[in-house]
Design a protein around this nucleic acid. Structure first.
Lengths: 126, 126
DNA sequence: ATACAGGTTTACGTTAACGTAAAGGTAACC
DNA sequence: GGTTACCTTTACGTTAACGTAAACCTGTAT
């Protein structure tokens, strides 16, 4: 039983994720996506779509495009041997530290924001 | 009793705040700082220094230069009308929401990281 | 006298992440 | 056969916040 997977046009994906066609072309240009072609037109597989979705999630996290892709590649079960796995674990831990550091900075920024806000509000009452 | 206030050179301020001379010149170019001159050289007053310090704090909060300056101008007794103040409060709240959202996503990412790590480790045992 | 550590202006270069034409191909619909 | 809806490539434009180089002045130390 041959199951033909669903495919997507550039416009479909752009609409689904609320981005422009240009962005998707840009991602391909950078090598972050590698859709098939039917003649000149891009054909995106379900895997392409998931990859794009993950990349965009990274962007929503405030990561750069490059960082997003790096993380997505990290999750991609391409690498197989023990050395690679250890390298992956190292990268996961590094990323964890990075995220924890970012979290602390956010907490600091939030505290300072509250401080500024309080001062602005107290000025108002004078 | 004439109290001569301390003044600062461009390099002194750059060093103190860990930025480059170019940045300070850029801020002046944009009209965000207006130091005196002794001949061609910039002379920064204590007030200039405080202003720069506040601007940089805004930047640390993740605000744009323009937004930072807007907030600093709020402390300037000349420019503080109510409408502007409300606008700034709105911006502060917006930024707060943004930071809180980022924090949540970081927590999510951390949880997912742990998940991936567990899976990688369990693969190792097979 | 010369080196050196500062300062100055002018002005083009950089990076990220696309935006925005321009000029065109293809397939379906009316 | 004309319009519409998509798609294509090429390529220059945009924004923020400076970086970087060139070419220069200027006071102080050796």
């Amino acid at each position: 039983m041959t199951m033909t997977q669903k495919t997507y046009s550039i416009g479909e994906l752009a609409r689904e994720f609320g981005i422009t066609n240009r962005s998707i072309r840009f991602y391909e240009e950078k090598g972050f996506l590698t859709p098939e072609r039917a003649g000149t037109k891009r054909i995106f597989s379900a895997a392409d779509r998931v990859r794009l979705k993950l990349i965009l999630r990274g962007k929503r996290l405030g990561l750069s495009l490059e960082d997003s892709v790096a993380i997505v590649d990290l999750y991609d079960p391409v690498s197989g041997n023990a050395a690679q796995r250890n390298e992956l674990l190292k990268q996961l831990d590094a990323r964890k530290l990075q995220l924890e550091s970012q979290r602390k900075e956010i907490d600091l920024a939030l505290a300072e924001l509250e401080d500024v806000k309080r001062r602005v509000l107290s000025d108002k009452n004078q």
